[in-house]
Amino acid sequence: MKGKKSLVFLLAALLIIGLAACGGTSGGDAAAPPEDDANALIVVGFSQVGAESDWRTANTQSMKDTFVEANGYKLIFDDAQQKQENQITAIRNFIQQEVDYIVLAPVTETGWDTVLQEAKDAGIPVIIVDRMIDVSDDSLYTAWVGSDFRQEGDKAAAWIVENFKDKDPVNIVHIQGTIGSSAQIGRTAGLEDAVAKNSNLKIIAQQSGEFTQAKGQEVMESVLKQNDKIDVVYCENDNEAFGVIDALEAAGKTYGRDGDIKIISFDATNAGLTDTLAGKINYNVECNPLHGPRVEKIIKQLESGGTPDKKAYVDEAAFDATTITQADIDARSY
């Protein structure tokens, strides 16, 4: 009985403090010291998808490193654990807390109209990172920051064109990513465009490895049984490349820097770059997770009254097995 009474009291007290905090504009109130800080700092609410990969972890870390108090920011971070409901709740919370900017790394493309409209009504600019969103009204978000998968594909295709200038035909095996993902669409388009423009390039097999090592290996095993002459294997991420390497190894083929079959890969994860340094992967195009600085640039632009570009791409490098060094790998936290 006593426990219940004290609980009621506690709730009432919390309610009063809460009301005071909401209504308090003085800022000197003892109940709301964070608001005092918040007035000086730019408050950024960041809703992240989750922590499913090294890439994602590096992405989160980049935001946390950029939006620190020393730089004049206060970051409110929310991990949505792969659920859109959680992200929508997080955005509503950000609106309630009257943050200055909302940064969203969306888990899916669709279903954001309502909650982004709420943010717009509240006058809070929304910056989308990584994946794109599909909304009926483009003014619902201020800008998008992410990887230009198409450009990544173009870079890799350019390497093939450059290195096989004198060869005809160049037999390419194309291991695609999960069909329909933006990374797959961009990277596939890059290669297919190059094939259309260069008559010596020929895709002899095209199948999805679903971005996994196991599927990449299984698909490559099958491809090897039909095609004897393979010059290039174009894998749309590092995991697929690992699987392809295992399949080539089992079939007794030579590959990589000193072998017959050249391997192209994307993402440039730590394990992928290690294989590039070892000469197993010939060319690895980076998918840069360090979005923080680019987002900060947009926020600075908005703060000074400017209009940032609707789409902003992060800078991305590419690594050739003949020129990569250990220092390149060490310089990366992911």
Partner: peptide, 14 residues
């Protein structure tokens, strides 16, 4: 699955 790979069925139709 192996048959469909061997027959070169496109990934989106698989």
């Amino acid at each position: 699955t192996t048959t469909l790979y061997a027959m070169n069925v496109a990934a989106d139709q698989l």
